[in-house]
């Protein structure tokens, strides 16, 4: 469960570049819900994920995850509750470490190993077992440096790593955007399988309207730091990509007329 209440985020406060990225955002994602998020560039999608994960501290407001008020927690502490897959495949894995070491690192998130060896038989077996899900043969390359993998393979590994511990909240920020269509499809299906199997509370940002409607249980649209559209259940089931596009266009149009006003 994620509860974001009354969160405001302003970048470059007190400078000429001051920009409010989120305006009094309220968003509740109940336990086990898979939420998809769309919106134009700069709408505040990544910023809201960053607020939940702790990369961005809000000016005001509160963030509660799994019943704990995490507003003042640093990133590494929140990682015990929240996992993330980044858009850039290079961000989700550490290229200087082996596949197995990356796995062990993710494992340490909920079960730190301190002065014990990072890798033991259990972790090796677990990693191999999880990697088999990918059907990429990576379970036979446990000791290869992650830097040797392709972007798609790295992203698939990131996803497995993010869902390997005991965290119940998963944040995905355009995690298939850097992949070719076929690999993107593969990673997306894998996401769906894992999220369903582990009943994770998930938030997925995407630029694909089709993806946003096809996957998950609920869709919200961001525009200029606000949620302007929120659909689930029958309302969402009846929606077509064209309906979303129409909404999108309406907002872009509004933006244009605003600019026109300013210029006029």
């Amino acid at each position: 469960m994620i509860e974001v209440s009354d969160v405001r985020v302003t970048f470059n406060k007190g400078t000429p570049l001051e920009a409010t990225a989120l305006h009094e955002l309220d968003l509740v994602v109940p336990r086990g819900q898979f939420l998809t998020v769309i919106g134009s560039n700069g709408a505040g999608k990544s910023t809201s994920l960053n607020v939940i994960a702790g990369l961005v501290r809000p000016d005001c407001g509160k963030v509660v995850v799994d019943g704990q008020n995490v507003t003042d927690w640093p990133i590494h502490q929140r990682s015990r509750l929240i996992s993330r897959v980044f858009q850039d495949p290079k961000m989700g894995t550490c290229e200087d470490l082996t596949i197995l070491e990356n796995f062990a690192l993710a494992h340490g998130r909920t079960q730190p190993r301190g002065f014990r060896f990072a890798i033991d038989k259990t972790i090796r077996e677990r990693a191999a077992e999880r990697l088999k899900l990918l059907k990429l043969g990576l379970e036979n390359r446990l000791n290869d440096k992650v830097g040797l993998l392709s972007g798609g393979q790295r992203q698939a590994v990131s996803l497995l790593m993010a869902t390997t511990g005991e965290t119940r909240v998963l944040l995905l920020d355009e995690h298939t955007a850097a992949l070719d269509p076929k690999t993107a499809e593969f990673v997306m299906e894998l996401t769906r399988e894992i999220v369903t199997e582990l009943k994770l509370t998930s938030v997925m940002v995407t630029h694909s309207m089709a993806q946003a409607l096809h996957y998950g249980d609920r869709t919200v649209m961001f525009h200029r730091g606000r949620i302007i559209f929120d659909a689930q259940g029958d309302k969402r089931a009846a929606m077509q990509v064209s309906d979303l596009l129409a909404l999108f266009k309406r907002d872009q149009g509004e933006e244009l007329s605003d600019d026109a006003l300013l210029l006029g």
């Binding site: 994960a53 640093p74 990133i75 590494h76 990682s79 996992s83 993330r84 980044f86 290079k90 961000m91 989700g92 894995t93 550490c94 290229e95 200087d96 470490l97 070491e101 062990a104 690192l105 993710a106 340490g108 998130r109 730190p112 190993r113 301190g114 002065f115 014990r116 060896f117 990072a118 790593m161």
Partner: peptide, 20 residues
Amino acid sequence: TGLGMNMRAAGANPAMAAAN
């Protein structure tokens, strides 16, 4: 060790390490 590997990750990819 677990700690030593955390240190290696912290140097190689700090954002990823923090997220883990």
